[in-house]
Design a protein around this nucleic acid. Structure first.
Lengths: 229, 229
DNA sequence: TTTATTAATGTAGTTTTTACACTTACATTA
DNA sequence: TAATGTAAGTGTAAAAACTACATTAATAAA
């Protein structure tokens, strides 16, 4: 009964990446304008095909690197999309991945070369294929993640203020949070280092800068917790 | 640049199903003894290949039906496994699905014909390929699901006692739950109908039977909630 | 030195969660 | 038919978590 294998259909397997970034203006996703058919010129997630000798995680990493120049980015597999005609050219199953990156750190040139652009999540253009759905599901997953894992290290600059962290969470959850309650909940996680340094951009008084305590942060990544914001 | 497609590698895409069932003895998974190479005779999840004109959900449903005769079973996609040599015969990416079924309702004959067997989750044999990992991840997902969606309708007989429901949750979470607190939390969901009928098997006094209120149950399935057990 | 602006900080009231033990109903047996 | 044994059923008080909320502090600019 070896023909279980030989009689089976082969398909193309793609990877599409939902890349989240954050800056003063809020939560954004990285999109490209396709430079090949079909749907040339339309906006799309960055993506590519899985190679024969490559695991999915590696494909996602390679694709991210191709378009942004970034390495060592945390990515997470989300879901396999398999509607028959989702790609009009050929039957293609696509596995979505999401990544969190610091907008300031990305290689702007590469993004330029690929006609890539950051869009606020609420102002993103209509996307090809089922990419809109992929984005919506990724946002859901990102929201969920805030409640069980620490988030921020990936999206914020190395030194950041409490307000920036608060605004990041507000952008992800798309709701207002009480500042004092937020601070005490975050502090209870014990993943921040408060520096002696202040950021003077935002006010006369200046606000303390923080860094993530990398060891504690990664310790928390290993075990789920519950964070009600 | 149409050769984006033509130059891409095609692969086999499989679906493997983690099928959970529950009876007096606890939480179980359905496994089969493979009747084809490789690994003929070893225990495995039930699975099969995706067909060219089939979406993944349909493949999962078809495979479940083939081995159990069951239809209309809730299934959920979990994860795509893509290690290069996970299947020694040929490069195969497998998408796992999990299903919850009522052991009493399955078609025993079909299971017999396919050398399938229910195993308590803690006493399952070693499985082929990466199927052990798939099972472990499915258990994690099932645990998570208890905290955001109602579970039970799929796994319990139509009429059941509070104790059965409690034991189901204890089996899934693999921890003891306080009986009174459990009952009041479940009652607060308002998804149960208390019948006038009693089950006299378990005690002299007899314990009330319940059914799920199908409308309210499915309403709750649409929206997440938080259930701390 | 006054003013304007954002940062920083604590608590009381409410809600939720937890821990916990006795009584009830009934079949069985003496 | 009375006594016994077994699991079912039920409520509360204490602790913990969460929410809402307003004043003072630090500093640069005028």
């Amino acid at each position: 009964m070896l023909n279980n294998y030989s009689s089976a259909d082969k398909v193309l397997l793609a990877v599409d990446c939902i890349i989240f970034g954050f800056d003063n203006a809020g939560l954004k996703i990285l999109l490209i304008q396709r430079d090949f058919e079909p749907e040339k010129g339309k906006w799309s997630l960055i993506g590519g095909f899985l190679k024969r000798d490559e695991v999915l995680d590696a494909a996602a990493t390679r694709i991210l690197n191709t378009y942004t120049g970034l390495n060592d980015i945390y990515m997470e597999q989300l879901y396999a999309y398999s509607e028959i005609d989702r790609d009009p050219v050929e039957r293609t199953i696509s596995v979505s991945y999401f990544a969190l990156i610091n907008i300031e750190n990305h290689n702007a040139e590469l993004i330029q070369n690929y006609h890539a652009e950051w869009f606020p999540i609420n102002e993103a253009p209509n996307l090809i294929f089922d990419h809109n759905e992929m984005v919506q599901n990724a946002i859901k997953r990102l929201r969920y993640k805030t409640s069980v894992k620490p988030i921020g290290f990936e999206l914020l600059p190395e030194k950041f203020t409490m307000r920036q962290l608060l605004e990041l969470y507000e952008a992800i959850l798309s709701k207002e949070l009480d500042k004092r309650n937020f601070i005490s909940k975050i502090n209870s996680l014990e993943i921040l280092n408060k520096l002696d340094e202040k950021d003077m951009q935002s006010s006369r008084k200046g606000s303390y800068l923080y860094t993530f305590n990398k060891e504690k942060y990664e310790e928390k990544l290993l075990n789920d917790f519950v964070l009600n914001l």
